[in-house]
């Protein structure tokens, strides 16, 4: 198991290095970082000095090395647009995005798994059929359209929920949370549903098909033949066996949620990193874009690692690999 973890860590590091290189390449080869800092009337000798100070003319491996070292310390340079340090801009907005993503993921899991279990246990009931049809529509609707529809229904027609912003936030050190105020909680409902709906349909469909698959297996038939109650068969035996693929997809989707937050944050003017990224794309603010890329890459890699670890918790076959022969 240790060997497995080490192998995964090395892989993760390689992926991060690749992402960092793409990000570095964007940073270095698009536009001239110096030209973006200096004004038009900056004297030539000052520019030369700045070039030296920034190390722009060093050999590429050196610059890449410096980029990685700086990145690990959270130093990503200055935004072209606001000339603020990119690291701080992102750190300021990260809590908003993480809270939104987390609430959306919890919503997707909390609703998607039971719905999928139900649809898998009773595939022929009208409720299951309805859920499947609606979920197909859910998959076809672009996220931003769902957001607009929700705003129209709950903010415009019914007027019960806010259509933009985060509501009041409370600061804990560097972390600002909207989850502790009434207005903050109200503000997160629509964005979280918008963001989570697609993942919800995905998780529901996945759990349903896995559940139907598992229910056909011999060990479920044998569990029934042993006279176990429906509850023990369905939730004790069947559900646990559907978890491995569900964990995989959910893990990957969690990363996707953070990326998809770009859209939701735009629709609801949610002050998170997604909105920041969008603005940086519009203004070709390369440092922010490349930093965002590194951040997303990091999130994906971490989630993948966690998913791999969870396999060990769920599936004993992996845990004991290497000493299976002991059973003979």
């Amino acid at each position: 198991m240790i060997a497995f973890i080490v192998r995964r860590l090395v892989q993760a590091a390689l992926v991060m290095l690749a992402v960092a290189f793409v990000s570095f390449a964007m940073f270095n080869f698009i536009g001239d970082p110096v030209a973006n800092i200096v004004g038009q009337d900056t004297p030539a000798d000052q520019i030369v000095e700045l070039r030296k100070a920034l190390g722009v003319d060093d050999p590429m491996p050196v610059r890449f090395g410096r980029f990685v070292v700086n990145a690990m310390q959270g130093k990503f340079g200055l935004s072209y647009r606001t000339t603020e340090p990119v690291g701080r801009m992102i750190a300021d907005r990260l809590p908003a995005t993480l809270e939104l993503s987390l609430v959306a993921a919890i919503f997707a899991l909390a609703a998607g798994i039971p719905m999928g279990v139900f649809a898998g246990l009773y595939p022929n009931s009208w409720l299951s059929r309805m859920m499947m049809t609606v979920s197909l529509i859910g998959i076809s609707l672009p996220t931003f359209l769902i957001g607009i529809l929700l705003i129209y229904i709950f903010a415009v027609i019914l007027g019960i929920l806010p259509s933009f912003g985060r509501g009041e936030t409370i600061k804990f050190g560097f972390w600002s949370t909207g989850l502790l105020t009434v207005s903050g909680l109200k503000a997160i409902i629509l964005p979280a549903i918008t963001l989570g709906l697609f993942q919800l349909t995905l998780i529901m469909r996945l759990v349903r098909s896995e559940m139907m698959e598992v229910l056909r297996t011999d060990y479920i038939k044998f569990a029934r033949a042993r006279g176990l109650s429906n509850r023990a068969v369905h939730f004790g035996h069947a559900l646990k066996n559907t978890l491995v693929p569900v964990i995989t997809i959910t893990g990957l989707q969690l990363g996707a949620i953070i990326a998809f937050a770009i859209i939701t944050e735009t629709v609801f003017s949610w002050p998170g990193v997604g909105l920041l990224f969008l603005q940086s794309v519009v203004y070709a603010d390369i440092p922010v874009m490349s930093t965002y890329l590194v951040m997303i890459g990091f999130v994906f890699v971490v989630i993948n690692l966690i998913v791999d670890m969870l396999y060990f918790v769920v599936d004993p076959r992996l845990r004991t690999q290497g000493r299976t022969s002991g059973g003979k």
């Binding site: 992926v15 690749a18 992402v19 964007m26 698009i30 536009g31 990957l252 990363g255 996707a256 990326a259 998809f260 770009i262 859209i263 990224f277 969008l278 940086s280 794309v281 519009v282 070709a284 390369i286 874009m289 890329l293 997303i296 890459g297 994906f300 993948n304």
Partner: peptide, 25 residues
């Protein structure tokens, strides 16, 4: 493999942003 682990929309936005940087608005 690496690209597949990133959502398509993100890739598209990055390409778009990069070309914006290269071409000017």
């Amino acid at each position: 493999d690496v690209q597949l682990s990133f959502p398509a929309i993100l890739i598209a936005m990055l390409v778009d942003g990069v070309t914006r940087g290269l071409l000017g608005a």
